[in-house]
Amino acid sequence: MASALRGALLCHLRVPVALSRSNWDPLGSVARFMSSGHDDHLTKEEVIHRVLDVVKSFPKVDPSKVTPDVHFQKDLGLDSLDSVEIVMALEEEFKLEIPDKEADKIDSCNLAIEYIHNHPLAS
């Protein structure tokens, strides 16, 4: 009985064995995945969200005032050393190493978001 059923099944069942060679790239993706430069990019929304989180958690900042285009010194009432501290906190958040001269130029949320979004190694 069982063998008859098995034979009947095997007569009618076909498992298509089609391996498309063009998509078959197991090692390539692994090589990309394991290499040190990674291409997975942060989305703009994620960058904005995380930058604002960092700025809001700064002790001297009133969280309700923080929007994506505030200026650290003009709008939030911080001084230049505070903005240095914020930029350093952003560097730690996104695991970045920003050169001193460029970090000095970042003085608003807008610029920070722009810089981090365009940085290939932000994560």
Binding site: D25, L27, G28, A31, R32, M34, S35, S36, G37, H38, D39, K95, L96, E97, L121
Partner: peptide
């Protein structure tokens, strides 16, 4: 402390991504 990918960091130039357009011929 140096961020790993930065010059002097522990991952600097280690196993870099292959250039785009280069594939492995199996």
């Amino acid at each position: 402390y140096i961020v790993p990918w930065a010059p002097g960091g522990s991952k600097f130039t280690r196993n870099p991504t292959p250039p785009s357009g280069i594939d492995i011929v199996y």
